[in-house]
Simulated scan of single mutants.
Amino acid sequence: MTDLAVAARLLAEEDLLVDLLACHPRLPLAAGISTDEDAERSRVRVWDCSGGGLGELASFDVALAFTPWGDYRPPAIAWHPHEPLLTVADGNALRRWTPGGPVAPLPAPDGCDALAYSPDGRALWTSTSDGDDTSAVLDPATGAASPARWWDTGVGAHPSGELVATLVSDQGATFCVFARPGGAGGAMRQQRRALVLDVDGYGTPLFSPDGRHLALRGNAYVDSLDVFAFPSLRKVLHTALAEDGDWPRHNLAFGPRSGVLWIGTPGGALIELDVEALEAVEHGDPDDAAVTALAATAAGELLVAREDGSLTLLTVSTGGEAPTPATTAGEDAAAFLAATGDVPADGDLDGHLDFTDGDHDWDREKLAEVTDASPDDPTWLQLRAHLNRAFAERTD
């Protein structure tokens, strides 16, 4: 069992609960998003997490963001991978903040609902789900935009910097697509090898700091958790979270120990989950205040927001053993990329994918032969079997 210790704690506004936390990948900086429905604004706060402390650096409001179904959601937000630069979607503009103060905004595409910097910071990837699903690549210096193949929800960067994971979602099935940076105009170069997930509504893919695991939180119908090994994409865990409360959407963080995933709960506890051993330990909160958001800092601390308005920085003991470095991350990324290839720029994406569900590999020929599926099979496979049967009946 890992020991947690409170390094710092502060109170935010209790009526403006933080429902998303985003930590800078390399610097001791964190940002939080709260939604003020009455004022029709979202509040962005930025904190300094250096030296085991928490100090607020900035607070500013941006326009409310909405899902395609008219529900409120946190605005798109992204840290630059190297610089202390935060970018937040604010209506038709991308607001930018640095410790020295705001810098000139960039134009935002209409309906911008996802935002990410490329691992080298030279491109700003944006995606929209407002009407026509589109994505674009922006030049961070000028805001000049060029179109790119669609992706949605968010982008998780592998610690090697050689690839990223993102989603292409649909009600029938969602693909977790892997991509190299550095395509034409700075776009992603999406790869053939992919994961298939049931239905849609998943959160941003989350790589562990050593790059050996990938976690996905979803979906639109069930509070589920999926963990896959990387680069094999072997399914390590699939579970539905307990139906005992309103689970926060942004409640996952990998800690400094390899294979340990932390989960924030509506009951206030943090669950320490060893994803390979499938062993879990619950760390309770004295006040039983529900977790509203969870993230890990660049130093491996846990940053926890709760419904009582508190923000807590927790140090995570590794039991005397040094945190597992990402020594093989580059080799793992190279092995994955060597076994796949770029998706052609034209044609439907899923027509070019060779994908796995973590247990079985699927290609076009194998899928065309599926005509039977049980109610226990994922929805996407049941739909495929139904379509194949219907096609066979028409051609008989």
Rank of each mutant, 00 (worst) to 15 (best):
L20T: 00
W151V: 03
V155K: 09
W69H: 09
G268R: 03
V6S: 04
L225K: 15
A289I: 04
D38V: 09
F228C: 05
A116T: 04
L313S: 06
V222A: 12
D342N: 13
W97I: 01
R26F: 08
G51I: 06
M1P: 02
A299L: 03
G203R: 06
E14M: 14
D226Y: 10
W151H: 12
E83I: 02
L349R: 02
A277P: 01
A141I: 11
W97E: 01
S127Y: 14
A242F: 12
S224C: 11
L294V: 02
A329L: 08
A144K: 03
T166M: 09
E307S: 11
D48M: 05
G309P: 00
A173E: 15
L241W: 15
L27E: 05
G201T: 01
V227Y: 14
I33H: 12
R43G: 01
L124Y: 07
A31V: 03
T142H: 06
N251P: 01
L206A: 05
L261I: 10
D372G: 04
D357P: 05
G201C: 03
T371L: 06
V46C: 13
S232R: 07
L237A: 08
T356D: 10
E331C: 01
R122K: 10
V343P: 13
V304N: 05
T87Q: 05
T35V: 12
F175H: 12
S59T: 10
N92V: 00
P105K: 08
A93P: 00
R217A: 10
D372E: 15
W69I: 00
T315C: 02
D133T: 09
P99T: 02
D200V: 00
S127W: 14
A290S: 10
S135W: 12
G91R: 04
R9E: 13
L237N: 03
F60H: 13
R122A: 13
A322N: 07
T126D: 04
D113K: 12
S374P: 13
G183W: 12
L27M: 12
P140Q: 09
S59L: 07
A173H: 15
P205K: 07
I263S: 05
E301T: 15
A63I: 02
L261R: 11
E14N: 08
A5I: 05
L106D: 13
A30Y: 15
T87K: 07
L10Y: 04
E331L: 11
T312W: 14
V199D: 14
A12Y: 04
R234W: 09
L11G: 02
D133A: 07
L337V: 02
D287I: 01
D130W: 06
C23D: 07
G121T: 08
A339S: 10
T87D: 03
G245P: 00
V62T: 07
F230W: 11
C176G: 08
G185T: 04
R43A: 07
G358K: 08
F254N: 06
D223L: 10
N92G: 02
P375N: 06
V88S: 10
D139M: 05
S34V: 04
E13M: 12
D287C: 01
G300D: 12
D3V: 14
V88Y: 15
